[in-house]
Design a protein around this nucleic acid. Structure first.
Length: 918
RNA sequence: GCCUUGGUGGUGGAAUUGGUAGACACGCGGGACUUAAAAUCCCGUGAGCAGUAAUGCUUGUGCGGGUUCAAGUCCCGCCCGAGGUACCA
């Protein structure tokens, strides 16, 4: 019987769906949770790169299930997003319709690949039943503060009580800006004033913040949504602007996010990316006395040792101290400078590195040296980092150096023997000079000594700074979760939980309102029953994706985010598979979100994703044809140098193994109808290039096309065979035939010459058993190591061997079906049923290998030695002492190493590798 | 600049973690079957040299050194690619 993959795949996909084979419930087996990053359903549908990670996780899920685990492997959709909204703006079609259509298309494509998802647990972030819990968590965050002493989020009600009793005394709280007040002061404040203060401590808070404003998109963006001054989506310019926005106090969790990375089984590079993003730096906050303000201002430095070399101070243009420090005669110059920097976008600032700045007119006093130093303003200092002001040490910081040279400020070298006439000396080694009590120390000693001095003399304190900022949580868009927030006396209050979900209202147009308000400004009656106005912004994309993994545990629960029982059982994700592009976005937010819920005692695990595997990107492999200029003649790749040609992208779907299907090409586009061809060896060979997979390059390969012509099992195995899962690689169908052939050969093992299903019950011999057990062992270790490309090879070797042995024995072939089933579930299911089983192959048990069949021939040799060696000559399966001796002696290096001694015990494995013992 | 990764045939990629480098697959060459093609199957395939041949020898994992009986793998110094990050004080 022929291997009819269409028939087989349709049959079993239907069977799986109808019988809910992959439905999971809590039971008494051990659990295993495998999660894919859920997709944003874009209009373009899935391309061949998307399923790569899904296939890997599917194989793993199926394998774990065969090993006796109760495997949770759900799927859903990250359904809020900009493309649907932009499409809505252009066409007027409601984003929910676009989203629904796209989801259906995705589902259709996913179903064809034969995944073992439990679709009963599907979630969509735009579903009110789902986002009810996103809003609910937001309310929790609004009603919490972060206690630095306990390193934990706590209810805000607790803080209100403390304020009423002791004010801010003895408190160490995460906040937007340091505040100090007594209980009396607190108690005298009115409701609005108290609410204002509380916003400074809430984990979800509303505040004036410097934000990335993208006017082309009409919304603010988070740091991870901006790269090099351009928005990641769309590539529009982004500028810095101060706006009142919702933020999440992620920075409070910086240290925990950093520390807990240690426990995670993630790739080193991903952890490193997160460490960089969190950006912990240890240093000190040093107070500088400001003469004309009669006050002290702190600056942050990691180089406290260089305090004797401070020759000026620099303030960020956005700093709140700019006004206070500007003296009357500098007012105009400063105003001019601010005007200029304000209108520069982030991108311009990066592109144009010319040095700019202006003197404020004020001076500070060096706390160790007592001299007067001028205070400048420059945009090379960032308002959002440290205190927005720096002490400049031009001799040992290249940026300060450039500034000093440009404005002709003094440079004082602090390290013995360094030459600062042309550039600064940034390295942290050498012996200190010109530095008072630090003279003669090494730099690292000096840093420590200086910090100690600063603390002991009340000049400042040790301080740890983080680069990680709070996440801006408002978006001026329509297609997102509404905030469960209303305003009373201009202060935000959250809705009662029983009002949730607060559903997204209908609006007539999806553009911002004429008033300049976000789109929700167009909604009618967007207010509470009492008539208080509701928040007009919506939440960003990461709101819905931060805790979706919890919702899968208990997706239909309307009373809890997740029941204690379900959470106790499923705990957290054992294996998370997805792209590395989420390293500084989703994967930080999700960890933060999870830790917050953990602090609230709502969930049992403090990290969401134990093990994480990043699948590589699949790039496109474009094909080209070469048109002779000014004609409609096309010349094959090998001959193109003889002509003057233009390179034209050609649809990769009409090219096979770089050979152009001429017939289809002429029909592809009208202009090619009468094309002529200059062939080589009767074929038209196309050129190729590796590029991003995109429509405009005609290199998008749709998985449906592959499934149609080769079947889902071939697609699955081929995607795995392509190379290591973490590696990026171009999609290249050149090898797919090999995998297809393998499956057909595999199929043929189970059928006799006449095409009848045929297995014998005869006992397997040693060789057949070895072949099987070798394969079981290899596949098992490969799956556990996520090395799927080598697994596919192992199957190929196994089948080739069994074919040459003409093996048709049940004892061998039946276990083989089971170990193949994670990779090619359809063909395995068919064969499993043909073997006479009534239940699905996924309920079988992964066979155990027997080491006995794998090792042979242990041989005792009468002399002494220690170490490892190998034979140059291969030994036969059975051999004599003499043969061993000969084998050893023929090997020069071994002989040299033996140095006249003779081994005592020689262990031979499969005639090859030998352990030799003294 | 800093951090993280990689660099192996014509191509994608293997290598039990220090033990016959190039598994498996593609491609290519040769053959069988066929009227023919497709499909299928078999043989060969890193490079170089010698031989009628089985085979033998030399060389070979980005470059240069080192450790070791033995290095793609470990150590030192470079070169190149990919990704992350960057006026972060």
């Amino acid at each position: 019987m022929e291997y009819d993959f269409r028939k087989i795949e349709n049959k079993w996909q239907k069977y799986w769906a109808e019988n809910k084979i992959y439905k999971v419930e809590i039971n008494d087996k051990p659990k295993y949770y495998v999660l894919d990053m859920f997709p944003y359903p874009s209009g373009a549908g899935l391309h061949v790169g998307h399923p790569l990670g899904y296939i890997a996780s599917d194989i793993f899920s199926r394998y774990k299930r065969l090993c006796g685990f109760n495997v949770l492997h759900p799927m859903g959709y990250d359904a809020y997003g900009l493309p649907a909204e932009q499409y809505a703006i252009q066409t007027g079609q409601h984003p929910s319709i676009t989203t629904e259509t796209n989801i259906n298309r995705y589902r259709n494509q996913l179903d064809k690949i034969g995944f073992c998802f439990d679709w009963d647990r599907e979630v969509r972030t735009c579903d009110p039943k789902y986002y009810k819990w996103t809003q609910w968590t937001f309310i929790k965050m609004f009603n919490s503060y972060y206690c630095n002493q306990a390193q934990q989020a706590r209810p805000i009600s607790e803080l209100i009580e403390v304020f009423a009793q002791q004010g801010t005394r003895n408190l160490d709280l995460a906040c937007s800006k340091q505040m100090q007040f007594t209980a009396e002061e607190w108690n005298l404040k009115n409701e609005k004033e108290q609410q204002e203060i509380l916003l400074n401590y809430r984990i979800a808070y509303l505040a004036d913040t410097t934000v990335n404003w993208c006017s082309a998109l009409g919304t603010v963006l988070a740091n991870d949504e901006v790269s090099e001054g351009l928005s990641i989506r769309g590539g529009y310019p982004v500028e810095q602007k101060i706006m009142k926005q919702w933020s999440l106090r992620v920075s409070a969790y910086a240290q925990r996010l950093l520390d807990d990375l240690e426990k995670l089984d993630w790739s080193e590079s991903l952890k490193e990316t997160q460490r960089n993003w969190i950006g912990r730096s240890e240093g000190a906050e040093v107070n500088f006395y400001i003469e004309n303000l009669n006050t002290e201002l702190p600056v942050f430095t990691t180089r406290a040792d260089t305090v004797f070399g401070v020759t000026f101070m620099v303030l960020a243009p956005e700093s709140e101290y700019v006004d206070k420090l500007t003296t009357d005669n500098q007012k105009q110059a400063v105003a001019q400078y601010l005007e200029r920097t304000k209108h520069r976008t982030e991108r311009e600032r990066i592109a144009d590195k010319s040095i700019t700045g202006v003197f404020t007119g004020s001076y500070a006093i060096n706390p160790v040296k007592g001299n007067k130093i001028p205070i400048w303003i420059s945009d090379y200092v960032l308002a959002g980092y440290g205190t927005g002001m720096i002490m400049a040490v031009p001799a040992h910081d290249s940026r300060d150096y450039a500034f000093a040279k440009h404005f002709d400020l003094p440079v004082i070298p602090l390290i013995e023997g360094c030459d600062v006439s042309v550039e600064s000396f940034d390295a942290k080694d050498g012996i200190m000079i010109n530095s008072g009590f630090l003279n003669g120390l090494t730099v690292s000693q000096a840093i420590e000594t200086a910090k100690k001095y600063i603390e002991e003399n009340g000049i400042g304190k040790r301080k740890v700074n983080y680069r990680l900022r709070d996440a801006i949580f408002s978006r001026q868009r329509y297609w997102g979760e509404p905030f469960p927030v209303y305003y009373k006396q201009e202060m935000p209050y959250t809705l009662n939980e029983d009002k949730l979900p607060l559903e997204l209202p209908e609006i007539d147009k999806f553009l911002p309102a004429e008033t300049g308000e976000p789109p929700l400004g167009r909604a009618k009656n967007w207010q509470t029953a009492e008539g208080y106005p509701l928040e007009l912004s919506t939440m960003p994309g990461f709101a819905g994706s931060s805790a979706y993994y919890l919702r899968y545990m208990d997706p239909h629960n309307d009373n809890r985010l997740v029941s204690a029982e379900a959470n106790q059982y499923w705990r957290n994700v054992d294996l998370y598979v997805g792209g590395t592009e989420h390293a500084t976005g989703h994967l930080i937010y999700s960890r933060f979100w999870n830790k917050f819920l953990f602090d609230c005692g709502l969930i049992v695990e403090n990290e969401p994703f134990k093990k994480l595997v990043n699948q590589g990107m699949i790039q496109g492999r474009s094909n080209f044809v070469y048109r002779v200029k000014g004609t409609n003649r096309f010349v094959s790749l090998g001959l193109k140098d003889k002509y003057d040609t233009t390179e034209i992208h050609v649809d990769v779907n009409i090219v096979k193994n770089d050979i152009l299907d001429i017939d289809r090409f002429t029909k592809w586009m009208p202009e090619f109808n009468d094309a002529e061809f200059i062939l080589e060896d009767g074929k038209y060979i196309c050129g190729y290039a590796i590029e991003k997979m995109s429509k405009s390059m005609y290199n998008v390969v749709n998985p449906d096309v592959i499934v149609d012509s080769y079947g889902a099992d071939t697609l699955r195995m081929y995607e795995m065979f392509l190379g290591p899962i973490e590696q990026s690689k171009p999609w290249d169908t050149n090898g797919i035939d090999g995998v297809y052939r393998f499956l057909r050969r595999f199929w043929a093992l189970y059928f006799d010459r006449d095409g009848n299903f045929n297995m014998s019950d005869e006992k397997a011999n040693q060789q057949e058993l070895k072949c099987l057990h070798k394969t079981i062992k290899k596949i098992q270790t490969d799956i556990e190591n996520f090395s799927f490309n080598t697994s596919v090879s192992a199957f190929m070797i196994c089948v080739n061997e069994l074919m040459s042995l003409k093996c048709n024995k049940r004892e061998i072939l039946e276990p083989l079906v089971i170990i193949l089933s994670p990779f090619a579930p359809h063909i395995a299911e068919e064969l499993w049923h043909l073997c006479g089983h009534a239940t699905s192959v996924c309920d079988a048990v992964f066979p155990k290998y027997n080491e006995e069949f794998l090792t042979e021939n242990t041989f005792e040799y009468p002399v002494s030695f220690n170490g490892k060696m190998r034979f140059k000559k291969e030994l036969p399966l059975t051999f004599t002492v003499k043969q061993v001796e000969e084998a050893i002696i023929t090997d020069d290096t071994t002989q040299k190493w033996l140095d006249g001694k003779t081994p005592k015990k020689v262990i031979v494995v499969v005639g090859k590798i030998v352990n030799v013992v003294i």
